[in-house]
């Protein structure tokens, strides 16, 4: 197994007491595509980022076990972590406008990711960056490599981000709402690109989103999170057979193009969901 998490808990100590963001989450992942769905604050991002131990500095995480390819992430030192981060597992963030370094060219940022894990000359890294840009289907990679992030569109920026994270040839890709900041037409392109690259390279994928149908379309398996817990986990194809009222509620809230609906149902939240 690539990733194994047993009873992960993430807490934040605040002035008013301890707030629990993730409660007893367990998951396993092989070379497959897992979707994690949930609303803002449900703990989906924290769960995924804890695999790379990239949590905010005030977060306290504990788990019975949290391993990446057998390496104990919670107890690993910085050196060990750096051999996982980027090299074996990449992370794609939501908005390239903020997640790319504004004062470095796209090419330099990709070359840096290549160079730090693969070594070699600067020239080779620059060349590799251009090839990677071509792989994420950018038509004019030479020009884009020289461009600064603010000169790129959102979709283009996200392609640069993907190229950067794929540079060291990782085994796992974590995509944290990779298309939420993009236009609807670009969203599909980027997701197809991610799916294509992941399938071709035989990588594992964790796709985080709040868009349930979208995730089920691109993933093998879907995990639904609510208030820091996993409320339901099911094969993407079996989405219609979801049993948990929260998942059902999410599905019912979708407007359909095929038939008229006067009013979308409003989800009635049950306090008992918090005590699974």
């Amino acid at each position: 197994m690539l990733v194994e998490i047993q009873n992960l808990r993430i807490q934040f100590r605040t002035a008013t007491g301890v707030s629990e963001a993730v409660r007893n989450v367990s998951l396993t992942l092989g070379q497959e595509k897992l979707g994690i769905v949930g609303e803002s604050g449900s703990g989906k991002s924290l769960t995924a980022r804890s695999i790379l131990r990239l949590l905010p500095s005030n977060a306290i995480s504990t788990a019975d076990s949290l391993t990446f390819d057998g390496i104990d992430v919670l107890r690993a030192d910085e050196r060990t972590l750096r051999r996982i981060r980027g090299k074996r597992a990449g992370l794609i963030l939501q908005d390239p406008k903020f997640s790319l370094n504004p004062v470095m060219t796209a090419g330099a940022q990709i070359a840096e990711a290549w160079h730090v894990h693969r070594g070699g000359s600067r020239k080779a890294a620059e060349q590799a960056a251009i090839e990677l840009l071509a792989q994420v289907q950018i038509r004019d990679p030479q020009r884009v490599a020289r461009a600064y992030p603010h000169e790129l569109s959102g979709g283009m920026g996200q392609r640069v981000m993907i190229a950067m994270m794929l540079a060291p040839d990782p085994e796992l890709l974590i995509a944290d709402e990779p298309t939420s900041a993009l236009d609807a037409t670009v969203q599909a392109e980027i997701l197809r690109l991610i799916e294509d690259l992941v399938s071709r390279r035989g990588m594992g994928l964790i796709l985080i989103s709040h868009d349930l149908p979208l995730v089920s379309h691109f993933c093998d398996r879907v995990m639904v999170m609510y208030a820091g817990r996993v409320v339901e986990e099911l094969a993407a194809a079996a989405l219609t057979r979801a049993r948990h009222p929260y998942t059902r509620g999410l599905l019912e809230c979708l407007p359909a193009l095929s038939h008229r609906q006067t009013r979308l149902p409003v989800m009635q939240r049950d306090p008992s969901w918090l005590e699974v």
Partner: peptide, 20 residues
């Protein structure tokens, strides 16, 4: 956010601090 990106790339703490 670009600092999270830099950390996710597996860069050294010094490089994140000074370069990024």
């Amino acid at each position: 956010e670009y600092i999270i990106t830099a950390r996710a790339k597996g860069l050294s703490a010094a490089r994140i601090l000074w370069r990024h």
